[in-house]
Each structure stands twice: as C-alpha cells, then as structure tokens.
Design a protein around this nucleic acid. Structure first.
Lengths: 333, 333
DNA sequence: CCAATATGCTTAAACGATTAACCAGATCGC
DNA sequence: GCGATCTGGTTAATCGTTTAAGCATATTGG
C-alpha cells in the first residue's frame, strides 16, 4: 500500500474529501465560513497524512516569510550565544525562525549581510551593530540592539548603568582606589561601561582608566600604589587580571578585588569564581522581537530607544577591602 | 519623481522594456535563447531599479529555498560559536543561508526542531546531536555532525585522535603519571576524548580517570601521589584545574601540566595560557555543507562517515616534567 | 409568504518566478 | 527554391496558498 504519497498539499486533501481547496484552506486557518463538521474532517485528515502548509506558497501569497534575520558582528564573540539563545527562544514563541548572518566585523560586511537577508525574504532584521555604523535604508523593519551611547540604537542593555552598579558594589565593600580596564577604546559598548563606572566613582574614589589592547598593566605595581579594586569591561579581561594577579602572589579577593562583565560560562569555571555584571538577555530579546513584530504588522512604531537594566552577580572575586591600610607595602621579600 | 516604485519584479521590468517576463527570467538566469543585446538591456535595467528575485516565488517554483537548518543542542555551549561561524561561512559560499534552532538539550526538542525546520522549507539540515539520539526519518537530507563513537554519525571531528595527540604531547614532555578529567560521563564526545587519551597512555604511563560532575579532585593531593599532568576534555575544565592548582600553590606548568580542549577564547586570556586541542571547524563545515549539497542535488551520497583530525596548540600550561623526582613532597613549610 | 440575511461552500484570481511548448522569421544545405 | 534548422523571442501552465467574490440553500423577520 503506497500510503505515503509524496505530495501532501491542500489540493490532494481537497480531492480526497471531495471538497474545494479554498474550503481546506479556510478550515485549517479558521477563516471564512466553514461548518464545524467539515473543519473537524479536514483537520483530522490533515493530521493523518502529515500535512503542513508550504512555507514558499504561503510566503508568496502573504508576502511574509515569518523569518527574522540576525546580524552579529562576530559569532565567536562570547556574548553572542546567550543573546542568540534569547532571541531564538523569543522568536520561536512568536512563530518566527531566525536566519543568522555574520558581518565579519566590517561595516561593508554588515551592509552586505543585511542585503542578503532581505533578498532571502526575511520579515525583519535584528542587528548587533559593528562600531555603531549607521544603518542603510532598508525595505524591512530593522532593530538595532546597541548601547546607550549609540545614536542608531533601538533597544539596548544599559551598559552605562551596568558600569555604575559594578562600581557601586565595590564602593560598598569599602574600596576607594580603582583601576578601570578596557581593551578596545573604539568600542562604544566598552566606552559606555567605563563611563558608567567613572560616573559612580567621580568625587568619591580615586581611579585610573587603562586601555590594554596588548600591554597588560603590572597589577602588583598598581596595588603598591594603593589600588584594591579592578573593574573590567569583560569576563575575559577579568579572568586575565585574576590569573595574572594570583600568579604574582596577589591574592584575590583578599588583596585585590576583580569585577567582570557578561557572566560568561567561564565565570563559574575559574577559581576564584568571577563577580560579574549580567545583561538581561531575556528581556532584551523580548523587546527586540516585540518591536519588530509590531513594525512588521504596522501596528505601532515605538519611537524612543528603550534601555534594559543590567544586574550584578557577586561571587568570589570581589570582597571587602583589607582592614589594614591599603597603602601598606606588603612583604618586601 | 516617484522613481522608486515599491514593486520590483520581472513583470514590471518586462512591461517597461516591452518584452515578456519569460525573456526577463531567461536573460537574468542565462537560460533559454536570448540575444546578447537583450541580456545586457535586461541586466542593466534590473541593476538600475535594484531588482532581485523573490525568494518565495523562486522557492515555490523550484522547490528549493537555498536555506539549510542548523540544530544545536545548546547555543550557549562554548563550542557552538566557532562551529556556527564555519558553517555559516561555508554555506554562504555555496549560496545557502543558515536557519538556527536550539534543541534545548532534549531529544524531543531535537525532533521538534527538525520538524520545524522542515516546515520552514529548508533544503537540508545539519544536526549536532544530543546524546547520539537516532534521527527521525526526515523528508530532507540530514547530516549528523557527531563523534566517532556515534553510530548515526555523518561527519565528525576525530575526538579519539584528539585525545591521543593530547596524551602523546605530554608523554613527549616526559610525563608518566596522568589524571584524566571529564565532567559528563554520558557525553559521547567526552567519552571518545578520554578513550583516545587512554589508548595513547596504555602500557606506557600510569593514569587515573576522574569524572567530576560536581566534586573536583584535590590536585595537591594527586600531585603528592605522583601526578604531573592533567588531561581534560574541555578548556573550561582545564581553566578550573589551572586556577585551582595555582591557588593551592601548585605552579603550572612547572609542577603540573594541564591540557585543555577546543581552544575557546578564554584559552589565551588566562595566565598561564592554555595548551589545547583544536578541531578543524573549517574543514568540518566544508564537508558537512558539501555532503548536504550533494544529497540535495541527488548527485552522490557519500556513504561512510568521515573523520576530521584535530590538531594541538602548545601554550604555557604544559611543560616538561620537573627534573627532580616528581614524587618528592615539596616545601612542607 | 416574501424579502432580507445567514450559512456553507465553490470559483477564480492572484502572489513571482520558472520552463516546456510553440511560433515567426532568418539562414542554410543541396 | 524549398524543406530543415537555427535564432530570438512569446504564450501559457505551473508551483501551493490565500482570499475576494459569487452562488445556492436555509433561516429569519415582519
């Protein structure tokens, strides 16, 4: 019995049941006027033969593919996975699939990725912008998930506020002399995080900002000059700071506290585990998908960029400032 | 001047040029019989109005979407990004887009993800299987990128060989007493890696296998019993081993060598930088996409699973075994 | 009891690209 | 000079779904 005919479309179901394709379509979509009995008949038959509507056919007629594009500057960036997971889950809830594209770190790549996605028929695009590059005019709705300091921003994690709570947490622990570590002074995200830290420290504590694209500061030296807390813009930098410090005999957190950013998986794998600032990717994803969904259906266009606060996770790499004077030089031999 | 009419399709171009849509299609695709002059006319006009073929229209007619699905067990798994990047780049070269789906770590999730992708009209699917689960019968070609020990495997990184070269590198450095560290004894990938290590060590060196889902072994204790080298199944485990050892005053690599796996970004962020085993994701991606592409076009179906060798990167976390007896107890104060 | 409305379904026309089939005019072989 | 072939197109059908419009039959209001 050749029970599984290859072609399972509305036409086949219609023919088998002796009704028209329009009725099949209406019955399955719950539109038009179809009797309850026919609806039951059609749906059960569809279920039975394993029918599902052709994405291409539907897309052609409706002009919607139910697919969103996601453009990331660099997939291997450690922040990407959590974000992608959030977006994928949220999109899935709303009936959207996610088509990914890597902009390969350049503005040209970003534009070409966006064009490609449009040509593939996506209904909307979420862009994690590279260097705050201005979006080209596009024929589909586009959400830019950037940072507060980016003018093109649509929805963003509040990196400035993240920097602030990082600094405040260590102020609360008694620290008054900070080293602020970044590794890419061109990155708006990093600039915003550092800015937040500086805002919170200004007038209350001493601090020094250090951009370390290649050369890493001598932490023992810094500690001798009084630094007891290091605020970094990423868990990777925090990891480097912690391991470098411990290797040089500087105990973390007893002698020096280190704060990371992003809560990467490594944060709990390393000892001491890293205190860190974590973006609310779930909420971010929700707003991004909701924004696009609204824009696609031309319901409402939210005009102003919205910010999602970050939260803090205190683990082992941060602690109260040592009770003895932080300026004391320690065991000179 | 309303130069940019919204609708840019073949019909519009045909009308404007006074020719038929068939000729437009033929001219653009280089099929059929069209004079050189008309081809130039059509292509330049298409260029001018920014025409590109509708993905839905083409997909409907040709039955191909030029989109591949990618099912991953867990996007936040740190191995994913590099793999996704390779697949995306390779797919892009072949004219395919990548639709991602997260199987949320369960077999049910995996099956539902596959079904979803099929319903979205993908031409083929790449699956990173969860726990070596058997694939459902699918209506589209499916490539399983698993591990040598998986029976459903299509193309895989040779995790067994990876374990072997990890072990041999440390044997070459003089080590003869090993600790093998895994954290998920149900994972076929981890089992294969450990198996490779054991194969290389068997009869040559002493070793102990330790699965650490939660409790981590006391490395100082192990070192006292003679262990000088730790082989792990992941960079995260290696990171934990290194930092735990250094915290306990056990110098790496002077007193203990640690080998990671996968070459995650953290491998170069931590001090000492991690020696690690790195899969050739580029080659893997190439073979996977090539396999699917062939299967889609019903050209050739490669029958036997193929394996891609891994390579080793030696950094700071591994070194020659200490010249003094490894069994010596060290500075008991 | 008849017009108005509701119900349940069918017909047919899209959506945009592809492609088999056809056709007029030019060219060619012999 | 005439059938055969080639050239450069056109016509029309098709992919699978959606949806406006149409058309019976049944139901209701007054």
């Amino acid at each position: 019995m050749k029970n599984q005919k290859q072609i399972k479309n509305q036409k086949q179901i219609a023919r088998e049941l002796g009704i028209s394709v329009a009725t099949v379509s209406n019955a399955l979509r719950g539109k038009g006027r179809v009797s309850a009995s026919v609806i039951k008949l059609v749906t059960s038959r569809a279920e039975q033969v394993g029918y599902f509507p052709s994405a291409a056919g539907r897309a052609l007629k409706t002009g919607r593919s139910n697919i969103l594009g996601l453009v990331v500057p660099d997939i291997t960036n450690a922040v990407f996975p959590k974000f992608a997971q959030g977006v994928e889950a949220e999109a899935d809830k709303c009936g959207y699939g996610i088509l990914i594209a890597d902009s390969r770190g350049t503005q040209a790549g970003q534009n070409s990725a966006i064009r490609q996605l449009i040509q593939r028929g996506v209904d909307g695009i979420i862009v994690l912008p590279q260097r705050c590059t201005a979006p080209e005019v596009t024929s589909v709705p586009c959400a830019f998930a950037s940072t507060p300091g980016d003018i093109n921003n649509t929805v963003a994690a509040n990196h400035i506020q993240g920097g602030q709570i990082a600094a405040r947490a260590l102020l609360d622990l008694g620290h008054r002399n900070f080293l602020l570590l970044g590794n890419d002074s061109e990155s708006q995200v990093q600039k915003d995080r550092i800015q937040g830290m500086m805002e919170a420290l200004e007038g209350i504590a001493q601090f020094e900002v250090c951009w370390t694209p290649d050369v890493f500061p001598d932490l023992v030296e810094k500690n001798k000059t009084g630094v007891t807390a290091i605020l970094t813009v990423s868990d990777l930098l925090a990891l480097r700071a912690v391991t470098q410090a411990e290797r040089a005999g500087l105990k973390c957190p007893q002698e020096i506290s280190v704060m990371g950013f992003d809560d990467l998986p490594l944060a709990t794998a390393v000892r001491p585990t890293l205190s860190t600032i974590v973006p609310n990717t779930t909420e971010l994803s929700k707003r991004l998908v909701a924004y696009l969904s609204a824009a696609i259906h031309r319901d409402v266009i939210l005009p102003k960029p919205s910010l999602v606060d970050m939260s803090i996770i205190l683990r082992e790499s941060t602690g109260p400032v040592a009770t003895h004077s932080p300026h004391s030089t320690r065991r000179l031999k």
